[in-house]
C-alpha cells in the first residue's frame, strides 16, 4: 500500500497547497452566495421576514424572467448603460485632458488649487437638480450629472500622478533636450497607464451613481427609474431586481477594465 502512495517534491507540494487554497476561496465565495439566497428565501417563505418588505429571491427571479420575456429589461438596461458609458468616457477623458493642461503650468495649478479642492469636497449630488435644469431633463441632463461626479476627482488625482513622475527620468529626458510635449508623450503618459486604469475603475462606480441619481430625478426609462418607481408603488421585487441588474452591470464593466489591466501587465 505504501508503495502506491506518491511522494511529492517540495515544489509539487507548494503548487498543490496553492491550488487547494484557491479552491477553498472560490468554494467559500459560491457557498456564501447560496447560503445568503437560501436563508433569505426560506425566512421569507416561512414568514420570519415580511415578504412585502423584503421580497424574496424566487419572486425577484420570476419578475426578471418576465421583464426579459417582454424585452422590457433591455430597454432600461440599454438606456442606463448608454448614459453611464457616455458619462464615464466624457468624464474621464475630459478630466485627464484638463489634468494635462494643469501639468503644463505650475502657476495655473496653484491658482486653481483651492477651487478644485472645494469642488471636490462638495457632494456633487447636491448639484444634480441644478445641472439637470441647465442641461435639460433628457439623457443630456443625466449624462451631465454623471460627468460631474467623476470629473473633479479625475483632474486632481491624474494631475497628482503626472506631477510625481520620476525626477531622475525627467532629468534624463531633459539631458536630451526633450520638449515639454515630448516629456508628456514619452514619459508622463506611458509611465502612468496603470494609474489611469485605476482612475477608470473608480470612475465606473462614480458614473453609475451619477446616472442613477439623474434617473431618480427625471426619467421614464432606465434602471434608476425602475428602482424609484418600484419604491413609490411599494413593489419591492422591482427595486431588488433593479439593484441586482445594476450590480451585475457594474461588475461586468469593472471586469473589462481588469482584463485590460492584466493584458497591460503581461506586456510589460
Amino acid at each position: 500500500m505504501n508503495k502506491q502512495k506518491k511522494e511529492y517534491t517540495n515544489q509539487e507540494k507548494y503548487v498543490r497547497n496553492y491550488k487547494k487554497n484557491r479552491r477553498i476561496i472560490l468554494f467559500s465565495q459560491i457557498a456564501l452566495v447560496f447560503v445568503f439566497i437560501g436563508v433569505w428565501e426560506l425566512f421569507s417563505s416561512v414568514g420570519i421576514l415580511d415578504e412585502f418588505l423584503f421580497s424574496k429571491p424566487s419572486a425577484i427571479v420570476k419578475l426578471l424572467a418576465q421583464y426579459i420575456k417582454t424585452n422590457e429589461i433591455f430597454k432600461h438596461v440599454g438606456i442606463s448603460l448608454y448614459e453611464t458609458l457616455l458619462g464615464l468616457i466624457i468624464g474621464t477623458s475630459l478630466g485627464i485632458l484638463l489634468a494635462i493642461g494643469l501639468w503644463f503650468s505650475k502657476t495655473l495649478t496653484k491658482i486653481l488649487d483651492p477651487f478644485l479642492v472645494v469642488l471636490n469636497a462638495l457632494p456633487k449630488t447636491a448639484l444634480a437638480p441644478i445641472l439637470i435644469i441647465w442641461a435639460g431633463t433628457g439623457i443630456k441632463g443625466i449624462v451631465v450629472v454623471s460627468i460631474s461626479l467623476s470629473l473633479v476627482m479625475t483632474i486632481i488625482s491624474a494631475h497628482n500622478f503626472f506631477a510625481h513622475v520620476d525626477e531622475d527620468k525627467l532629468k534624463m529626458l531633459k539631458s536630451f533636450h526633450a520638449s515639454k510635449f515630448q516629456i508628456l508623450t514619452k514619459l508622463v503618459l506611458p509611465s502612468n497607464v496603470a494609474n489611469l486604469l485605476s482612475i477608470i475603475k473608480i470612475n465606473i462606480g462614480m458614473a453609475w451613481v451619477g446616472v442613477i441619481v439623474g434617473e431618480f430625478l427625471v426619467s421614464r426609462f432606465g434602471i434608476g427609474y425602475l428602482v424609484v418607481y418600484g419604491g413609490q408603488v411599494f413593489k419591492l421585487d422591482l427595486v431588488m431586481m433593479g439593484v441586482f441588474v445594476l450590480a451585475i452591470l457594474a461588475y461586468l464593466m469593472y471586469l473589462i477594465v481588469t482584463i485590460f489591466e492584466k493584458y497591460y501587465r503581461k506586456k510589460r
Binding site: 527620468k169 534624463m172 509611465s191
Partner: peptide, 26 residues
C-alpha cells in the same frame, strides 16, 4: 552625453527603443 546614477531605462520600452530614445527626441 550624460549618464546617471540610476539607469533610468523606461520599463515600457524594449532595449532597442530605449537606446533610440535620444535620436527619437532629436
Amino acid at each position: 552625453g550624460y549618464m546617471f546614477q540610476k539607469d533610468n531605462l523606461l520599463e515600457w520600452r524594449t532595449v532597442y527603443k530605449n537606446i533610440t530614445l535620444g535620436p527619437e527626441i532629436k
